[in-house]
Design a protein around this nucleic acid. Structure first.
Lengths: 186, 186
DNA sequence: GTTACTGTACCGTCTGGACGGTAATGCTGA
DNA sequence: TCAGCATTACCGTCCAGACGGTACAGTAAC
């Protein structure tokens, strides 16, 4: 119930969330059942329903966890680099280099009920407003934002259309434009 | 079995496909059941299974129909404009102005089994190769391709993050760059 | 005593799909 | 020409199993 050194502390809740994401990614969002999640997480079904009283609650938690993680990453990087747009490029680039943890869960949530995407939409809009507020060229912001969204969606669907080199080249081009766009954080 | 004037001829198969897309869009991909599709299409379940012998077959058909339609639109426009990249911008722009017909079905197919995306991936790769083959700036092609992918994914998820004006501005910027990129069709 | 589970048993509903019909049309040979 | 058979395009029912969710008794740590 408590790790000796109070640091990582992987709770059952975390394991359940992770298992749900894995199953969704491997077997497709439609085949995400509570039984399967519980088994994968090494938890009884009762235990799962203790943490998430319904499937909808599990979905909601997956989306929220995902958004929170992305937001935290972005904020961290932006604080360091002083340029929100550049930070967005970096964070998305890193995320898309390897399979996105949690993204498959978002897909499952959408499949269950499109409304679960609301937190994502709000986060995106908030972000875009902040990006536009401090940028020189509105066109460049939009283009970079959309291109990153495209990159993310390719990863989300495991659509490895771009080669590593192409992806790197695209990111490099975005990084350059982002710098020129001269946005300063906060 | 035969329409008096041999023209449009909306077959039961078409109605089923359309119904499946509608249900997926309205109720979420996970709630797409054969019963619901049959009812919506005004067809019995037996009739549905006559045309699509399994749910997987229905999903596959949805994806293939979608890809074929997009590809045909693109080819048509490209032949007229003489610029494949510009045509891609136009076609995607028009598609994203209103809800994409058929896109929700693709989402349902992914949910059922991620492998159904293969035809999409192949189409995308083919397209990207052709775009790059004739373009002046590889960077611009990649950026525009990704931005369009982003636009499409926003629509796919009904994530109307961008206002109409922003979307129009983004498309305008892409159209300009596409022209400058000077690609000639074929 | 509370928290955080385990384990089992159960329930009603939904789902994919198999199956046995059937009506209309097309085709063929006498 | 027309009987008769084949094919096409469906209909409607049935079923085994999976699913989400409930209920509840027990337990081990804090």
């Amino acid at each position: 119930m408590m790790s000796p050194l109070c640091q990582p502390k992987i709770t059952a809740r975390d394991k359940i969330l992770a298992a749900a994401v894995e199953i969704s990614h491997e077997n497709g969002a439609a085949n995400l059942s509570l039984d399967a999640v519980a088994a994968r997480a090494g938890v009884s079904k009762g235990g799962l329903l203790y943490h998430f009283p319904s499937k909808a609650a599990l979905m909601r938690a997956m989306v929220e966890t995902f958004v929170a993680r992305v937001e935290a990453d972005l904020e961290d990087t932006a604080r360091n680099s002083g340029n929100l747009l550049s930070a967005f490029v970096s964070v998305t680039g890193e995320e898309c280099a390897k399979p996105i943890p949690g993204a498959a869960g978002v897909l499952a949530a959408i499949a269950e009920d499109p409304d679960f995407l609301k937190p994502v939409k709000e986060f995106q809009r908030r972000l875009l407003d902040r990006l536009q507020a401090g940028a020189k060229s509105a066109d460049d912001v939009l283009l970079i934002y959309l291109a990153l969204e495209g990159l993310r969606s390719l990863r989300l669907f495991d659509l490895d259309v771009l080669s590593k080199e192409e992806q790197e080249r695209a990111l490099k081009a975005m990084r350059m434009r982002a710098k020129d766009c001269g946005y300063s954080y906060k």
